[in-house]
Write a protein that binds this DNA or RNA. Structure first.
Length: 426
RNA sequence: CGGGGUAUGGCGCAGUCUGGUAGCGCACUCGCUUUGGGAGCGAGUGGUCGUAAGUUCAAAUCUUACUACCCCGACCA
């Protein structure tokens, strides 16, 4: 992609209404623009990252045996009355009417719709377990949207729902999702903790949250420095303890000591049990021909929130430091004097074509600006590897390979090409 | 919904107290010179000063109402 052709409006100044670093950087890097409070446009650069995360989630969900569906955003009031949630939900449920004055809502979650789908189409235990997921825009009319896409009103989420014949099967589905979520966040390249959580308003039994660790996280969690143990402060506070008093104490699981960390909740898995299936009469026949209420689990990952969380965890004073798996581009070629020197332009274009044919996602900065602007922009948007082609190429045929984290090396085009070949082999 | 704050060109801001008809930096357009860390000179484009009403000879500025947005809190993936 040529930089001069991409719709990539970067900003030198930090917009005044952005408080947290991920929001500031997403605006400055031209990833998003606000439409209204808590609702954003995704620009090409931001969308690339969003899609990369979405695809990793999709691949791992598919690998787990879950199947993708797509449910409607607009949902009829009748379904929500079956579970009493039309009343319970309050103003966070955005309600609308059609031309016939029938009531609908914009889906903040999809338990009702999916349970309706399954009760109408699944009749036997032989069709279970079943795990259906979708990647879709949700709408929750938050009391106070904030921090950009971290807590938007409209956001992209992967939600899935498992249907099981009994508790053991539900537990298996739950554990499979837990493993799947670990794989997903590890592939994204993010540091995280799994936290025992209050199952809250959705109700049900077991529930765990996946937190990406970041200084600006909204949640305070107590984690062990040498095991998986982690717990949300909300749970401790219920028991009358102050979370900060735990710092440095031995972990309850006997491994290591407790550290207090800030986390961003990016995933949440629940064992719902029978509550929704009971309310909506979702039954199947078991192997004795008796009608059984379904057990359900639900599993959410905030895709758009992950974009912000990744930035909160990976940035420096210059801009974003994308983990390789979700960087919008892998390589940026900075051609100094592209418009004035044909040798530079040719070398840069040839190199661009070479890397592209090797399978790299590459950007070529062909703008008329100087090194400073190009480098600052590249560092801002966080491309992991830069290749600089400039005066040095004219003088000694050498170009520079510069990593976003600072390491750099200089060599001929052939040398650098070889390095890229090695990267691809890994 | 309680508390606090902001609203002037795409972004960042000054001007408001003390009313006189809008300005600075960056960005953008054109020309020339530049090009290894956000270049220089020259010439330009762009704003009903959030909205409405009021006071006044005159309102970005004073008054009133409203709206939007941001932050803290309660709530939540």
């Amino acid at each position: 992609m040529l930089w001069s052709k991409v719709f990539l409006p970067t900003l030198k100044d930090t917009p005044q209404d952005a408080e947290v670093i991920s929001h500031q950087l997403m605006l400055r890097a031209g990833m998003i623009r606000k439409v209204t409070s808590g609702i954003y446009n995704w620009l090409p650069l931001g969308l690339r990252v969003l899609k990369k995360i979405e695809n990793i989630v999709r691949e791992e969900m598919d690998a787990s045996g879950a199947q993708e569906v797509l449910m409607p955003m607009v949902q009829p009031k009748e379904l929500w009355e079956e579970t009493q949630r039309w009343k319970k939900m309050g103003p966070e449920l955005l309600r609308i009417q059609d031309r016939h004055e029938r009531d609908f809502c914009l889906g903040p979650t999809h338990e009702e719709v999916i349970t309706d789908l399954v009760r109408n189409n699944v009749k036997s235990y032989k069709e279970l377990p079943l795990n259906l997921y979708q990647i879709q825009t949700k709408f929750r009319d938050e009391v106070r949207p904030r921090y950009g896409v971290m807590r938007g009103r409209e956001f992209l989420m992967k939600d899935s729902y498992s249907f099981n014949i009994n508790e053991d099967s539900l537990n298996e589905s739950y554990l499979l999702m837990k493993e799947t979520y670990k794989k997903i966040i590890e592939r994204l390249g993010l540091e995280y903790k799994i936290v025992k959580a209050d199952s809250g308003a959705i109700g049900g039994d077991a529930s765990e949250e996946f937190h990406v660790l970041a200084e600006n996280g909204e949640d305070t969690i107590a984690v062990s420095d040498s095991s998986e143990f982690a717990i949300n402060s909300e749970l401790l506070l219920n028991e009358g303890e102050d979370i900060n008093s735990l710092q440095g104490k031995p972990s309850p699981d006997g491994k290591g000591t407790i550290e207090i960390k800030k986390g961003i909740e990016v995933g949440h898995i629940f064992q719902l049990g029978k509550i929704y299936a009971d309310a909506m009469k979702a039954n199947v026949l078991d192997n004795e021909g008796k009608s059984q209420t379904l057990y359900m689990g639900c599993y959410g990952i905030g895709i758009s929130r992950l974009v912000a969380a990744a930035i909160e965890q990976n940035h420096d004073e210059k801009g974003i430091l994308w983990p390789e798996a979700i960087a919008p581009y892998e390589v940026n070629i900075i051609a100094i004097g592209f418009d004035k020197d044909q040798k530079i332009a040719k070398a840069a274009t040839d190199f661009y074509n070479e890397l592209s044919s090797m399978g790299y996602e590459v950007m070529l900065d062909d703008r008329k600006d100087g090194y400073g602007i190009k480098m600052k922009d590249s560092e801002l948007i966080g491309v992991p590897i830069n290749v600089i082609i400039g005066r040095q190429y004219l003088e000694s045929n050498e170009i520079e390979l510069k990593h976003r984290d600072g390491l750099s090396s200089i060599g001929t085009v052939e040398d650098i090409t070889t390095i890229f070949e090695h990267y691809k082999e890994k």
